[in-house]
Amino acid sequence: SLEEAIRRAEEALRKGQTFEYAGIRVTTQEALEKFRKWAEKQK
């Protein structure tokens, strides 16, 4: 689910890792916010 993907992205960010979902790379807090906004639109 998208909620699960967001949780995994947050977890990866805390560990300093890269999270990738549907071709979207989350490597920074800013990218995480963009990913969250994108995920909201997918619902």
Rank of each mutant, 00 (worst) to 15 (best):
T28Q: 03
V26Q: 01
E4L: 11
R8Y: 09
Q29M: 14
E4Y: 07
F35M: 04
T18N: 10
K41D: 14
E11C: 10
F19E: 01
E33A: 10
A22W: 07
A5P: 02
E4G: 08
E10N: 05
A22F: 10
K15A: 14
G23K: 03
W38E: 02
T28N: 13
Y21N: 01
K15R: 13
G16I: 02
R25D: 05
W38K: 01
V26I: 15
T18Q: 10
L2C: 08
Q42H: 11
R8W: 09
A22T: 03
E33Q: 10
A22Q: 13
L2V: 07
I24W: 15
A9K: 00
L13I: 15
A9S: 03
L32W: 04
V26K: 00
W38S: 01
Q42Y: 10
R8D: 11
E3V: 10
Y21Q: 03
W38C: 06
E40M: 09
R36Q: 06
A5R: 03
R8N: 12
L2M: 08
V26R: 00
E11H: 06
A5H: 06
G23L: 02
A31S: 15
S1W: 15
S1V: 13
A39Q: 03
Q42F: 11
K15Y: 09
A5L: 15
Q42G: 06
S1N: 13
L32M: 06
Q42K: 10
A31L: 08
E30R: 09
A22V: 05
G16T: 02
E11T: 06
Q17I: 12
I24A: 03
I6G: 02
R36S: 03
K43W: 14
K34D: 11
R25A: 10
E40I: 07
A12T: 05
Y21A: 02
S1Q: 13
A39C: 12
E11D: 11
I6H: 01
L2Q: 02
I6L: 12
E11F: 03
R14V: 08
A39H: 03
F35H: 00
K34S: 11
K15L: 15
Q29G: 06
L32S: 00
F35A: 01
L13P: 00
F19W: 05
A9M: 07
L2G: 02
I24L: 08
G23P: 01
K41Q: 15
A12L: 06
I6N: 01
A22M: 15
A5G: 03
A9W: 04
L2W: 15
E3I: 11
E3Y: 09
W38A: 02
K15F: 10
E33M: 09
W38N: 01
I24G: 03
A39M: 08
R14D: 08
E3S: 11
E3K: 09
E3D: 15
A39F: 07
R8S: 11
R7G: 07
T18D: 12
F35L: 09
A31D: 15
E11K: 05
A12H: 05
Q29K: 11
K37F: 09
K43Y: 13
Q42E: 08
L13C: 03
I24E: 03
F19G: 01
L2Y: 10
K15T: 13
E10V: 10
R8A: 14
V26N: 01
K15W: 09
E40N: 07
Q29P: 13
T28P: 02
E20P: 00
T27Q: 10
E4S: 10
I6K: 01
Y21E: 03
L2S: 02
A9G: 04
R36W: 04
W38P: 00
T18R: 06
F35C: 02
R14Y: 08
